[in-house]
Design a protein around this nucleic acid. Structure first.
Lengths: 343, 343
DNA sequence: TTGAAAGCGATACCAC
DNA sequence: GTGGTATCGCTTTCAA
């Protein structure tokens, strides 16, 4: 591995000069600069992360985590993984500020993002899919802040990258799986968090597309539960009573799955409804073990948090740009048998 | 974060002394030693990996990779991931020696392991489940070599840890899934690599256990294909011809899946046999897209390689013991829709 | 038994 | 514009 020192010797300059060139800090004569760049290129120079980390720890860069996810069980795992990663990066000077709020409120999110200007070097954001939010994101990126969207993406923004799943594919996988395990007539009731969350809308399209050629399948009703268990219980109860012929529940919600299951139990329909959901909250695992839920689509919550934090770390501390814009985790199918994941 | 320097100041000794205590290098008076250990404990000292890596890179530790997997497609991904990880660790001085051979031959594996004594500091091994191998492993660990089993474990050995899946669970998941997608009579033909590979035997038990309460299910025949596509084709063809009532193929093999599928096609049975397999080789993906294979159990080959290498790195370079003995990756269910994984 | 010092790679800052 | 130097945390070596 080539080091700055070696390059400096080869070029007959000091390490400081090489550093200035490699980090675009200016103040170097054009000819020297070009020589250094050429040599670095030829020798295939890559900075040693350990050296860099050691030197960088006085910089104390700050990352803000902005998630309107308070009270939604799925995100506990995401946040936990971020906390763990943050802890292991703390010795490199990386600092974290948390902005965890409750409810999908565009104004609140915009206000939170406004606060960050000048205070942080990076943001990890679960965005609400609204023009006003994407405008705010543009403000941030334009002033040099590194922005990652997590778990959900946003249209027409200038975020640097996205970490999460492909929601359309998630819906499609669920729809296709449903048809593998239930070969008969499918009268489907759907509950989802909010169509304002991009992912939920995409899930719905994916699910529809998987069913589109099945004449035995029809969607009877769709309800928005705001990812709130109480509301979900009420809305699903209402839906089940209004449509007693429903024999499938597709719960594409992040925070309303337990509520939907309780509604099914209230109606005494746990034996004859096929239920497919997302994620593996403790309550979901319980319902799977009971046989109420047949399958769930797992979205790697912990890896989402871990990867997002790692990308920020690599960028802020090691100066490494993310390898790809879309960091897509696979939609995994979990049934009773393989739900208890170890790693 | 506490540093050695701070501990040294607090204890009124030099950094060298603290280092000697913390790394059990002796030559420190008992009372000083105890004081230092106490202070380090109290202040919750953790060595800074960057500092350590920087200082340790002249040590050039060597890890050997021993896998009897040449020609088995599944392991390409495992090895690729190891190569990638090795490359990123090379700047910390970690060196790799590869011993990739063909065929499950106990003598060959023992000979390979014997060669390593005194030459390497760690071994990543896909073991053949035989007493002679576990004896060799004991020799290695007794002389201070760090041994990890990958992809398959071995009984009664003294390996430090295992990275791979829970095969019993994999078989059970497959068996359970089979009953979810096929509700009728199940006349099952099984092909697997070798009962000498612990994992394959465990898969079979898991699969059996999932079916044990289903009166409609029976195993018609089991064949060992030595993870060889040619052999698998022949054996499966023979099996299908001998048992024309087989309507399910459970391919628990690592390297005989394509062969089994070709046998099914040769018999013209691709429409009426339910096929469940393991892993996602390119040929497997093709067969899934064609509809010949209904589902596969994915075993995270890349993560297996990456994690094994990371554990070795942490141990050899950072001096960190592995967090757990069993590093179990989840058995994931993949169908046509979610087979193309991005990350 | 112990301390002091050099060195690993990168960076920041102060002199010139 | 530039070079020199201190620094980060840890290990190793040499001298006392």
């Amino acid at each position: 591995m080539v080091t700055i020192k070696e390059i400096a010797e080869l070029c007959g300059v000091s390490r400081g000069t090489v550093d200035r060139v490699l980090n675009h800090r200016g103040n170097v004569k054009a000819e020297k600069k070009e020589l250094i760049l050429k040599v670095a290129q030829e020798m295939n120079y890559t900075p040693n992360p350990a050296g860099r980390a050691l030197a960088a720890q006085k910089m104390k860069p700050v990352v803000a985590i902005v998630m309107p996810s308070k009270g939604i069980g799925f995100f506990d795992a995401v946040i936990e993984a971020m906390e763990k990663a943050a802890k292991s990066y703390s010795m490199y000077g990386l600092q974290v500020e948390w902005y965890i709020s409750k409810g999908y409120d565009v104004e609140v999110q915009c206000k939170q993002l406004s606060q960050l200007l000048g205070k942080v070097q990076a943001v990890i954001l679960m965005p609400i899919n609204d023009e006003r939010v994407s405008t705010k994101i543009r403000h941030l990126t334009e002033s040099g802040i590194f922005v990652i969207t997590i778990n959900n993406d946003i249209e027409n923004s200038s975020r640097h990258c996205y970490v999460g799943t492909d929601y359309f594919n998630g819906g499609m996988t669920a729809g296709s799986l449903l048809q593998m395990i239930n070969h008969g007539m499918l009268n489907i009731g759907i509950t989802l968090g909010s169509l304002q969350i991009l992912g939920h809308a995409q899930r719905l399209s994916g699910f529809r597309s998987a069913l589109s050629h099945n004449p035995l399948a029809q969607i009877m009703a769709i309800t928005e539960d705001q990812d709130d268990e109480m509301l979900s219980y009420e809305k699903n109860l209402e839906m089940l009573r209004k449509h007693p012929d429903i024999n499938v529940i597709f719960a594409a919600s992040s925070g309303g799955i337990c509520g939907a299951c309780r509604a099914i139990m209230t109606c005494g329909r746990e034996k004859d409804i096929t239920v497919i959901v997302f994620d593996t909250l403790p309550t979901t695992v319980e319902m799977m073990e009971k046989g109420l839920i047949q399958a769930t689509i797992y979205q790697h919550p912990r890896r989402q948090g871990q990867i997002a934090m790692q990308i920020v770390f690599e960028y802020l501390v090691n100066g490494k740009k993310p390898e790809r814009e879309l960091n897509l985790l696979t939609n995994e199918i979990r049934i009773k048998e393989n739900i208890n994941t170890a790693l």
